[in-house]
Design a protein around this nucleic acid. Structure first.
Length: 571
RNA sequence: GCCCCCGUAGCUCAGUGGAUAGAGCACCGGCCUCCGGAGCCGGAAGCGUAGGUUCGAUUCCUACCGGGGGUGCCA
């Protein structure tokens, strides 16, 4: 199990003290493993170390817990240490901890929630995602990979890793010739067969090419050396045009890649594929059989050996995969692949390829996401590329907006199949959880505007008497706000965007409850019985709540920023 | 056949060894002379089945049942 990252200095200190207590009590060494209790009244943090030591120490858990507590050098920020249940050691912070937190959030601003993994775990992570074939527009399902890959990249970056967002463009091989042939047929009024690409985007790209290069582009040229050459020539241009459309569409969603890696330019034309095959052969990982060249992937966990070079001498697509992996490894030290479930068969061979190339398997991380069911009013929408019936990501983005699309995908784990119902997402969009979170942010912004208009003087955050924040709703909000750094660290570690999304929802809810129960600005009426009169009576309380709200707004904004969802001032 | 994913509230999903399993939607009942009711409070409702590991299992293992996807010298 991954240890809870002790990125919070207070927790790190507590961790050290707990370890010291174990030693002082003559108990076996163990990881204190601090965790957050589900129940708020169990305290701020808890450790199960006594439960886990019961076996090795051959004593009752509660006795061990008592020993730990007796030997613990309790730090100043801890108000109370108690033993509960079968042997939990619960820790409750002093109020000062919460006061410090508000100041910390205000000081760190947009950086609050970010952290640094230990230097030994810091990586340059190449995050490859989407990588859909540039032979057609992106469909809605690709939005899931776009949103997820982008947020993962953001999380990794926020935890101290260096990140490269990369899109692999499959712009080589048979499909490009076929794509070019499709364009030629569309442009010259020829008849498309079953195997050809079609759809409105193909027509548009054909028209675009005609507008740029003229109709003669689609005629066989002397240098084409026949119709296949013409198809390839047109295909290269068409693919680039389609790729640009994809790039623009992703940009509209706020997803921008650092590297658009062309298979043709980066692997075929540079000779990288041949070089990779040569290296694999040199390493003794390849062998000839039946006229073809095989890679010994079966020795590294794959079902069977895979062909690198066909008997006719052409390298396989898999050979390009190997070359690409090798190229990425020369530019990064951790490779993250985000693939759809339709590619799960690639996992073993890709990891085997890495092993054959001498890349440590743990540095090649392949995540499989389940596919997206596109529905309209509960009825499945066919996503057949051939018939051109796909629903483009662009259309959906235009209809419901990037925030809704991104959040819808990010709040669910990768291994659940996501239903994307256009009717639900578009028509009932006000019920989308993303609005719940954004509303909390906009609501705070609204209060701050009102305060400004009324000439409310909040003073400096440092001067505010934050010790006045003792209402249960205030304490709950403070506790929730304190959670962001750990949530970010865990979400990054687990590559689990839904952790952060659910946290944001929880935080928003905590704020809404605070807002309902605790008035920030005194009511305009001055009525002593009006709700919020306590604020009018104690202006210092109003100032403290004001700074709490500012800090809460910051935390919400930071959580949304990591998901790359907007945090609006107004809705 | 083999491989992967899923099965938690009526529905959509959180919860990757700990205490009383959480949200949203839907349903029932409350809350605006007051900072945004896109909100808040309360109610009813659940871990597919059977074993195993463990002090402790929704979580890990095995089998079974149910649903989804994959399985090419295609690209």
């Amino acid at each position: 199990m991954a240890r809870t990252p002790l990125i919070d200095p207070v927790l790190a200190d507590l961790d050290v003290r707990l370890r010291a207590a174990l030693v002082a009590a003559g108990l076996p060494e163990a990881d204190p493993d601090l965790e957050k209790p589900k129940q708020a009244d169990h305290g701020d943090w808890a450790t199960t170390v006594a439960l886990r030591l019961a076996g090795p120490a051959r004593r009752k858990p509660r006795e061990i817990a008592q020993l730990v507590v007796d030997h613990l050098d309790v730090p100043e920020v801890v108000a109370e240490v108690s033993i509960a249940g079968p042997g939990f050691v619960n820790v409750r912070f002093a109020h000062r901890y919460h006061e410090d937190l508000v100041r910390r959030v205000l000081t760190e601003g947009t950086r609050y929630g970010h952290s640094q993994v230990p230097a030994t775990e810091r990586r340059h992570v190449n995050v490859e995602f989407v990588s859909a074939n540039p032979t057609g527009p992106l469909h809605v399902g690709a939005g899931r990979w776009a949103a997820t890959g982008d947020a993962i990249a953001e999380l990794l970056s926020a935890t101290g890793h260096q990140v490269t967002r990369e899109y692999y463009v499959n712009d080589a091989g048979e499909q490009i010739r076929l794509f070019g042939e499709s364009l030629v047929l569309v442009a010259t009024g020829g008849e498309l067969t079953e195997e050809h690409y079609r759809g409105h985007a193909i027509v548009e790209v054909a028209e675009q090419l005609r507008a740029t290069h003229g109709q003669e582009l689609f005629a066989v040229q002397p240098e084409d050396d026949g119709e296949a050459g013409r198809a390839a020539r047109v295909g290269v241009l068409g693919v680039e045009a389609m790729r640009q459309r994809i790039q623009d569409g992703l940009h509209a969603m706020g997803v921008d890649f650092d590297v658009w890696f062309s298979e043709r330019e980066g692997l075929h034309e540079t000779g990288a594929i041949e070089a990779t095959i040569a290296e694999l052969t040199e390493r003794g990982e390849a062998y000839e059989a039946e006229g073809a060249l095989f890679l010994r992937t079966a020795e590294h966990g794959d079902d069977k050996d895979r062909v690198l070079r066909r008997s006719d001498g052409r390298p396989t697509y898999f050979a390009a995969d190997c070359a690409y992996l090798r190229d990425k490894w020369s530019r990064a030290d951790q490779l993250y692949y985000l693939l759809g479930a339709d590619h799960h068969g690639y996992v073993d061979r890709l990891k085997a390829a890495a092993a054959c190339l001498g890349v440590p398997p743990e540095r090649v991380e392949i995540r499989i996401g389940q596919l997206v069911n596109l529905l309209r009013g509960g009825e499945p929408v066919r996503m057949s590329k051939r018939a051109g019936e796909t629903i483009d990501l662009d259309e959906v983005l235009e209809e419901v907006g990037s925030d809704v699309v991104r959040y819808h995908f990010l709040r669910q784990g990768l291994d659940t199949t996501v239903d994307f119902d256009l009717a639900v997402v578009a028509a009932q969009s006000m019920e989308n959880p993303v609005y719940y979170v954004q509303y909390a942010h906009a609501r705070i912004a609204s209060v701050l505007r009102n305060a400004d208009e009324r000439g409310f003087d909040p003073g400096e955050g440092d001067d505010a008497d934050l010790s006045l924040l003792t209402h249960p709703a205030e304490l709950a909000l403070l506790t929730a706000m304190a959670g962001l750094p750990l949530v970010v660290a865990e979400a990054a570690e687990l590559r689990a965007t839904q952790r952060l999304a659910r946290y944001a929802e929880e935080l928003a809810g905590t704020f809404h409850r605070f807002y309902t129960e605790c008035r920030i600005l005194a009511p305009a009426s001055g009525d002593a019985d009006a709700p919020g009169a306590e604020v009018a009576e104690d202006p210092a309380l109003g100032r403290a709540r004001y700074h709490l709200a500012v800090a809460a707004k910051q935390v919400l904004a930071n959580a949304l920023a990591l998901l790359r969802v907007s945090a609006p001032e107004r809705m």
